[in-house]
Design a binder for these strands. Structure first.
Lengths: 330, 330
DNA sequence: GTTGGCACTCGGTAGCATCGAGTGCCAACG
DNA sequence: CGTTGGCACTCGATGCTACCGAGTGCCAAC
């Protein structure tokens, strides 16, 4: 696409801009390692890169800054990013140290990633509809309220409060639980929607309500967000921070955003590639993680377009991989 | 403390500053409703208020802004704040509409409060140690891993992953569960720590591990935070936003912050009254909520010191009250 | 094709005058 | 004697000008 010299000049501009947040002039580029020509030549090449859409000039007589196309080229031609020692060590220590509930662990993972990249970090955990049911319970809470509890094979516990509409004693609840257990155990939780009616009418009344309440509960992904504060530090405009924050607050938006990027087979979405106007000044770096060979979730970070891509790509990839391993073992 | 005239002048300054975010001059105060004297008199009084520590001057020849002491006086002498119609209606609609799991409801409550006050909102739900146990279950996940699940009377489900150290078959797990059930059912979950050893050694091995893993799980409060974006909109300095965000991200800090304020019997903590240096420019408005007459949690908002206190106080109080009612019924 | 040289551009900064909101003080007034 | 109008003063904000310098495009020479 670009000849070697243009490429290294572009690379120098991107790296310079990432480091200083200032437009990069021909002088700096000429001094950069990997560029051996004079500043005049650099100027010619930069003019060409600008008319090709890789660079932009905030105003005449200023240096150049990368466009989205420029960042894209930079990212695409990046040599396989490798993690620095300190970060690798930090990740290793984290996964050695962290135990306990998966929710707590995923939340902690966002803090880890955010610390490594100075960006907001996101971990998406998929819904549990397809995980097989291990046990089913119905516990009465009030005369006409019960709690449906299902323990799934992946170790998650799904619960749904059920308004029974009628009063039901323990015996009825137990019968309903037994009925559900026979049709659910070993099958995915989503099967709940197809559990056949129970024979006895009082029991069926309970089962029907559980069927209704339980289905919606398990479907949605769970999103963990961390490091909004470090994200805020990367932007100077308050309105940018504000709009990024409001996006991060909407779980549904975050989920579909990440899914969208992953589905397109990308690991980086730059500015408008995210498909969200408020993220025009942001980039998203994502990696799916797999448990037992199956892709089950996504980790990612959200930072400014002028983020440190090599570091971010490496960190996200390694954390995603380690997270998958960790979840596979237990 | 202050004579009537000083009080209304102080009030006018606080209200003016809250509205405009600009230092308030004697001219504006003289025109304010409730002030009938000339601007010269206002100037004299304002000088007195300043030397008494209620007002401050950013620089000579600028208007006055309230000090923390000024805000404090303003809040303390506020007539019982009453909610405007629109907000009251919004709250009513919210509680009529909202159903489902308590976690989802508390999260939605933060969004409600944040919308009403343009601040970040926080809801703290206490730990469940003291809630009686309804059922106990131990589910094997892997040869030497099990999941301890307890359903509590308040409808919450506590779970803890247990590394067994030894392999245990279903029969042993079931025996352990039965042992735990006999000593736990009807008693607070915290009793888990005092469950006596089981007789059979293989069973006791499991019980011991559960005892260990289960205790830590139930102790901690759960914190829901919402509306960080609206909070960000209230500040101009990025570093303020950043430090507030990093506080909101630390659950432990938020919990102890709110508890501290509630314990001091306050419903408003202004600036340094929060006891946290990074919150110097923030105020905290809190209200406990009660379920069945027992104080079980806290709702609150975190905004700039120049927030709309009457509105905030009213909104937090009403939401806390309605939330308590709502949780009491079912 | 590359490079040094050069005129040019234009944002940023400093200096300076001006403006005006606001103050403190004082003398006059009821 | 408290209140008020008047007045000189302060000082941040605004606007203007000059200037500096980083950076550019272009061109002639190598």
């Amino acid at each position: 696409m670009l000849d070697e010299r243009k490429a290294s000049i572009l690379r120098a501009v991107v790296e310079g801009y990432i480091e200083t947040a200032q437009p990069v002039g021909s002088g700096h580029v000429a001094n950069a390692p990997g560029v051996t020509v004079s500043s005049a030549t650099v100027r010619n090449e930069m003019a060409a890169l600008e008319s090709d859409g890789y660079l932009a000039q905030p105003h005449t007589s200023a240096g150049r800054i990368p466009t989205e196309k420029g960042y894209r080229y930079f990212v695409d031609t990046l040599s396989e990013p490798v993690l620095d020692r300190a970060s690798a060590q930090q990740i290793r220590a984290f996964f050695d140290r962290t135990h306990g509930e998966i929710e707590e662990m995923l939340a902690a993972t966002t803090r880890l990633l955010s610390g490594l990249t100075n960006s907001a970090a996101v971990v998406v955990r998929p819904g549990h509809e397809s995980s097989p049911v291990r046990t089913v319970q119905i516990v009465g809470l009030a005369p006409s309220t019960a709690l449906f509890v299902a323990v799934l094979a992946d170790g998650s516990v799904e619960k749904a409060t059920v308004e029974l509409l009628v009063e039901a004693d323990e015996a009825v609840l137990e019968a309903a639980a037994r009925h559900l257990a026979t049709h659910l155990t070993g099958r995915p939780l989503a099967t709940l929607a197809q559990v056949p009616p129970a024979l006895e009418t009082t029991v069926e009344a309970v089962v029907a309500r559980v069927r209704l309440a339980g289905v919606s509960a398990s479907a949605d992904e769970q999103v963990f967000v961390g490091g909004a504060a470090s994200m805020a530090a990367s932007f100077e405009a308050v309105h940018t921070i504000r709009s990024v924050l409001s996006i991060l607050e909407e779980q549904l938006v975050v989920v579909s955003l990440l899914r969208d990027v992953v589905d397109r087979g990308l690991s980086v979405a730059i500015g408008s590639e995210t498909g969200m106007q408020p993220l025009a000044e942001c980039s998203l770096v994502v990696a799916p993680y797999t448990v037992d060979g199956e892709q089950v979730g996504t980790v990612g970070i959200l930072g400014p377009t002028r983020m440190n891509y090599p570091q971010a790509l490496a960190a996200v990839a390694v954390v995603g991989q380690r997270l998958g391993h960790r979840l596979s073992e237990g």
